[in-house]
Amino acid sequence: MSAPGYESTGEKVVRAALALVLIAFAGFTFLLGPIGVMASDGCFDGDPRFICTVGGQRTVAFTPLITAPVALVVGLAGLGMSGRKQHDWGLALWAAAMAALVVVWLVVTTITS
């Protein structure tokens, strides 16, 4: 890393690339995650699968809609930190945001499969 308060061009490019990856993944999650509710089309009366319950459908529909914007804000805030704080916490916040989005996809695909 550069001296405190200064950022090299390479560091700026890496931060911008990480921000774009986060924005794309959060947008993909926000827009396509809730579509998993359509997996309940094959449900019938008395079907025991979780996707066939109101709770399962709400989980699949709302988890991506809530998590994606929160993860986006947290991750971008982490990338926006400067100096020592960014070095200590910034990338950890970005990684936590990405991990939250991965967990959403794991939850959605588990319920819908």
Rank of each mutant, 00 (worst) to 15 (best):
L76G: 01
L31M: 15
A39M: 12
A68S: 12
A16T: 14
G33T: 07
A26G: 06
A97L: 10
A39I: 07
G46M: 08
V21S: 09
F62Q: 14
D41R: 15
D88V: 09
A19Y: 14
V14I: 06
T67S: 11
T112L: 07
W89M: 15
L72M: 15
A99F: 12
G83Y: 06
G80V: 06
A24E: 10
T110I: 14
A26R: 02
P64H: 07
A26M: 03
L91Y: 11
G90I: 00
D41I: 10
L20K: 07
P69H: 03
A17F: 11
M98S: 07
T59Y: 02
G80D: 04
G75Q: 05
G36A: 13
T109Y: 06
L31C: 11
L65Y: 01
M38E: 15
L65P: 03
A68D: 02
A97S: 15
T63C: 05
E7R: 14
S40Y: 06
G90M: 02
W89L: 14
V102C: 03
W94A: 12
V104W: 00
I23C: 15
V54Q: 08
I35N: 05
V13H: 04
A61C: 09
D88L: 13
M81G: 06
T53Q: 05
V54G: 08
L101N: 00
T29W: 00
L101P: 00
F50N: 00
D41V: 13
T67I: 14
F30S: 08
